[in-house]
Amino acid sequence: MLLIYIFLLVGFSECREREILINEETSIETIIFDLNSISPSSLITYQLLESSSSSLLFNSTTNSISITKRIDRDILCPNDDLCSTCYLTMKFYDMFHYDILLLKFKINDINDNQPRFSSNTYSISLTENNIPGIKIRLSKAEDIDCLINSIQFYELTYIYNNRIITSKINLFQQINQTINYNRPFYLEYDSINFELYLIINLTLDRELQNEYIFTLTVNDYKYTTSTKLTLIVLDVNDHNPKFSQSIYTVNISHITPIGTILIKLTAYDEDSDENARIYYSLLSIDGYKLELNEKNDLFQLNSYTGELSLISTLNHLDSKNIFKLLIGACDGTHNAIPALTTV
């Protein structure tokens, strides 16, 4: 009958609320509230009606509430970035005042999580000859604490022209970034879309430097985490082949065997990979222009290796002549101007 009477009273009772602030990770068995502190008499009896969590224990003998299990705000309220809506509640019936008392325990975040990148190393790439000012979106670190204890700033550190350069950006105090405009690389943060960018503030030249190494550091005022960032400069075909000499001299005679490699020509291209693949061609003999794939009776040039070979025996008359061969080298670019040398 008493239980039925309590429930009937609950249905018609007013509800009082009280908010109590507690830190996450507070030690187990810690008393976080004493109901006697709000009662004019220690004889008041409270009946626990409901509790939102088993982490809290009500002692009906002492009217105290203590912690029985670990309270981790980041697990309890993972979406509460602003730390404003993470509560544990307990509802009591006040047997003296015949009303409802609702205790709301607001869980206060502490800085107990370190920012983390998803990888210890990142690699990004950009083609050389770029226009300065290009943005490259970077992977951000994650910190599951709420914003006030979460990531506060990023810092980029690198070496350029034998100088250590840093670019630091505060996510919550967006200072004027014009001080970075004279730096070859700097960070930029989009506070609307919450994106972090690397700004390439120079024209890259792969032949001068084919990669740049950065250290990207994140800090939440208590913990610091770093990751390695590598910018790989991709090649474009912006260099023509070059011969080391403009004229080569080879001595042959009528006794030189057929098939003899007279000389191996080598041209150099500062580009890389396919852009540095060189093709050789015999353009003219003694001023006579050879058409593409046109054969001649004396010489053969391997278009891939640059090897010039004798393919027939010189007669006595030929052996007294000076042969002037114009050799070209190109890297396969359409309508490319070949490098020239004379043999």
Rank of each mutant, 00 (worst) to 15 (best):
E19S: 14
G133P: 04
T341D: 00
E307K: 13
A141W: 01
Y154V: 02
P257W: 01
N129Q: 11
I136L: 14
S119M: 12
N108S: 11
S246M: 05
I278C: 08
I67S: 00
F323W: 12
L35S: 00
F58G: 00
N201W: 06
L126I: 14
A141L: 04
I6C: 09
M90C: 02
T89V: 04
E155Q: 15
I20F: 00
T178G: 02
L2A: 12
P40T: 13
N176C: 09
E128W: 10
F117Q: 05
D286L: 06
E294S: 08
S123K: 12
Y154Q: 03
D94V: 06
K222W: 02
D74G: 01
N237D: 14
R73N: 02
L340E: 01
T305G: 04
I134W: 00
I28S: 04
I255L: 14
K324P: 00
I322C: 15
D331G: 07
E195Q: 10
Y154P: 03
F117H: 07
I179R: 06
E211D: 09
F194P: 00
I134A: 14
Y268K: 13
F33M: 01
L126H: 13
L317Y: 13
S281M: 06
D99T: 06
H239P: 01
I255Y: 11
R116M: 08
L3E: 10
L340I: 12
T227L: 02
N170P: 09
L204G: 10
R183S: 14
E25K: 14
N275E: 10
S119W: 01
E29L: 06
I258Y: 04
K106C: 00
D271T: 11
F117C: 06
Y223Q: 01
M95G: 08
I232V: 09
I107W: 03
Q174P: 08
I337P: 01
C146F: 02
Y87W: 03
T157Y: 02
E270D: 15
D205H: 10
T313K: 15
M90G: 00
H254I: 03
E307I: 06
L21R: 14
L9D: 02
L202H: 11
E29W: 15
R116Q: 12
C77G: 00
L43D: 10
I169W: 05
I159C: 14
E155Y: 04
I124G: 04
S39F: 01
S139A: 07
Y279R: 13
G328V: 10
